[in-house]
Amino acid sequence: MSGGSGVAEHGRRRIDEIGEESRRRILDAAEELFADRGFERTSFVDIAKRSGISRGSIPWHFRNKDGLLMAVLARAMDRFLPPERYQRSLPSLATLLLDYESWARSGNSALIFMVLTEAMGSTGAVRGQYQEFFETRRRRVVRWLRAQRPAGAGGGADDRERAAAVALNGAVMGIHLQFLVDPEVDLEAALQSLAALVDTNLAVVWGGTRDP
Results as ranks from 00 to 15, higher is better:
M1D: 08
G4L: 14
A8R: 13
I18Q: 11
G19E: 14
E20N: 08
E20R: 11
S22V: 09
R25L: 15
R25H: 05
R25S: 11
I26Y: 07
A30W: 03
A30M: 01
E32I: 08
F34I: 02
R41L: 05
S43R: 06
K49Y: 14
S57C: 11
H61L: 10
K65P: 08
K65H: 05
D66V: 09
L69E: 07
A71C: 14
A71N: 13
L73W: 01
A74K: 00
A74H: 06
A74F: 00
R75E: 14
A76K: 06
R79W: 02
L81T: 10
P83N: 04
Q87E: 15
S89Y: 12
L90R: 10
S92P: 12
L96P: 02
E101A: 01
A119I: 14
G121R: 04
R127N: 13
R127F: 14
G128L: 02
Q129N: 10
T136C: 00
R139L: 14
R140W: 06
V141A: 01
A147H: 12
R149I: 10
G152D: 15
A153W: 11
G154Y: 11
D158N: 00
A164S: 00
V166D: 15
A167S: 13
A167V: 12
L168E: 02
N169W: 02
V185T: 06
D186C: 08
A190F: 08
A190W: 03
L191C: 08
L194R: 06
L194C: 10
A195S: 13
N201T: 13
T209H: 11
R210C: 08
R210Q: 05
